[in-house]
Design a protein around this nucleic acid. Sequence first.
DNA 1: CGTTTTCTACTACAACTGTAGTACGACAAC
DNA 2: GTTGTCGTACTACAGTTGTAGTAGAAAACG
Lengths: 128, 128
Amino acid sequence: MRERADVSLSELQIALMRVLWRRGEASTADVAAELSGERGLKHTTVATLLTRLEKRGVVAQRREGRQLLYRALVAESDVRRSMVAGLVGALFAGDARQLVAHLLQESEIAPGDLAELKRRLARERRDE
Amino acid sequence: MRERADVSLSELQIALMRVLWRRGEASTADVAAELSGERGLKHTTVATLLTRLEKRGVVAQRREGRQLLYRALVAESDVRRSMVAGLVGALFAGDARQLVAHLLQESEIAPGDLAELKRRLARERRDE
DNA sequence: CGTTTTCTACTACAACTGTAGTACGACAAC
DNA sequence: GTTGTCGTACTACAGTTGTAGTAGAAAACG
């Protein structure tokens, strides 16, 4: 059984990964272009970050002429899974229901959203 | 309007804070006793950690004879709020509903839990 | 008292992060 | 061809985190 990776990433690292998740494969320049726009990071910074992610095994690097192309080795859902589990474990005694209660209390979601999600889930269950 | 602190803590730091949140005020030894039990941390390690949290302003330190007594300066709800917001922002495009959808998909919660939470919220709204 | 225990203060140190600068080879533009 | 330019590799450096050892004062024990 393909064991799912247990990855926890920083906000910045996730931002890099998002580019790879969206594009499938991207060169350093591609990633740098997006990140220098929205966060003013220098190209070399992005290159460093990607190298580190590669060393850590969460992305793979492939050479294409002079350039390096990167692609994600962990799925976004894996990162979500492990990071949400980490947060729930650390702050909600491992009980995800408390997290949802928190979201309701803090008005991050509305009660109606729950109903809608439930309906959607039921529909999907039926359809698949 | 009392601006809420924006604190993000590591898992270990949260473990320390949990002791303070539970006990209100605790000496280094108190905290160390709990954490050396469940994680085998040395007393000096705990002392270092508490000092750092103090320097960072998330706990206050008070001297009682030779001992130092600590108490939390940020509420657990504040930490929850900012850390959940951070996670939702980084991994769910800022949309908390996607987080709940994720919890359902990963079976971290059951559809029935949503109904129950909704009921409970309605009841609380009415009662208060 | 003299000795042992208890606490805090300080120092240490390796990983990991965020952020870049520099050097150097390959390529494109003239 | 000579000269920028682009891209990668390597080095740097400060801040945070996890983890603890050591030193020195104070208190407790016998």
